[in-house]
Computed example of a mutant assay.
Amino acid sequence: MSTAAANTDSSSAPPAHVRVIASPQSWIEGEAVRQLEAMARLPGMRLAVGLPDLHPGKGAPVGAAFTSEGFFYPYLVGNDIGCGMGLWSVDLPARKAKAERWAAKLDLEGPWSGDVEGFLQEQGVKASGFELALGTVGGGNHFAEVQRVEAVHDAEVFAALGLEADRLMLLVHSGSRGLGEAILRAHVDRHAAGGLVEDSEEALRYLARHDHAVAWGRANRALVARRVLDGIGAQGQRVLDVCHNSVTPRRVEGRTQWLHRKGAAPADEGPVVIPGSRGALSYLVAPVGDGLGSAHSLAHGAGRKWTRTSARERMRERFTAESLTRTSFKSHVVCENKDLLFEEAPPAYKPIDRVVTDLVEAGLVRVVATLAPVLTYKTRSQEE
């Protein structure tokens, strides 16, 4: 073992405690559990938690959180460091939504035409070299979605967030674009999936770049929101912003533990939104409990049920691309990449109601409100 990287030959390491938070009614793929258990055998691992949206990833599962001591693992964070979600309250009444008109003209492709340097200074974030992508949603499961309030379940918390039931909302899911990928690639080129010894020079260097990507990702979501709001002729106020892919230190009984989240929302930063597919409700929830058994983490979405390849094949047999630009909520979907449209179709995801119910029954959250889609923006580009 070098001074910087942990040996990943973990056959002799005692496994961390493994916990999967899901009811018998929830379908969790066996490969996702196998990946979770494999990560639990990494040196220094103490806890590996699979959340109700757990599904297989590239070597490590998504919808999971891990704690370790002595080492941390950039590979568990992945290539979209700082990916997360921000929620904005919009100053338009839901009755004034013009989804069809907005869908026809809203375009977030290409570099933002505004003052990028000034915007980053306003956000308190340094430039990264990836500013041509700043203010863009990205591919995969990223989106910007105008929503309406379907129902309020906890009026007190809802009001404390400054929200009004008759107003539109805006949910933005995006990350650090190419920045996080460049950071992970630099680590993998040197250490493959190996971890870093805490306080080593390489660990400190990675953490500095990681923290920059987290801040840049948050700024990216803010600019995506600004572009959407400008496009629909509205103003908005950010209500919350949380990160789903990160590694952070926590002091536990005088020791430092490293909390890795890979597709997991924080349970220690106040309310969060857990979205379903573009054809399902999103849930605004408030964390409850001490968070110890869940690694201070929550599900970050519905979680994939089908692989992208399987979704393309299945959905092409059942639907036309045009039919998938409307949902059962009568909302509109902007996605001109047909492959992505099929890959991200609602049936490709687990039922969000079941995911949230699992969290409620586990004593991890209470539901504050449900939000219904009005307009979901994915991409204008026909190529990813």
Rank of each mutant, 00 (worst) to 15 (best):
S2K: 04
N7T: 09
S11H: 14
A13N: 13
P14Y: 03
R19L: 14
S26D: 10
L36F: 02
M39Q: 02
A40I: 04
R41D: 05
L42E: 06
D53E: 04
L54M: 00
V62L: 11
N79F: 15
G82L: 13
C83W: 02
C83M: 03
S89H: 05
A94H: 00
R95I: 11
L106E: 09
G129F: 11
G129Y: 05
V149H: 00
V152H: 05
E156Y: 04
V157L: 13
E164C: 02
L168N: 03
H173E: 11
L184A: 14
R185V: 06
R190T: 06
H191Y: 15
A192H: 08
A208Q: 14
A222W: 02
A225S: 12
G231E: 07
Q235S: 14
G236P: 03
R238G: 03
N245V: 11
R250V: 12
V252I: 15
E253R: 12
E269F: 03
L281I: 10
S282G: 01
V285Q: 10
G289Q: 02
D290E: 14
S294N: 13
A299D: 12
E317V: 03
R318T: 04
A321F: 07
L324K: 04
L340K: 00
F342C: 04
F342A: 02
E344C: 09
V356D: 01
A362V: 10
G363P: 06
T370G: 01
Q382E: 15
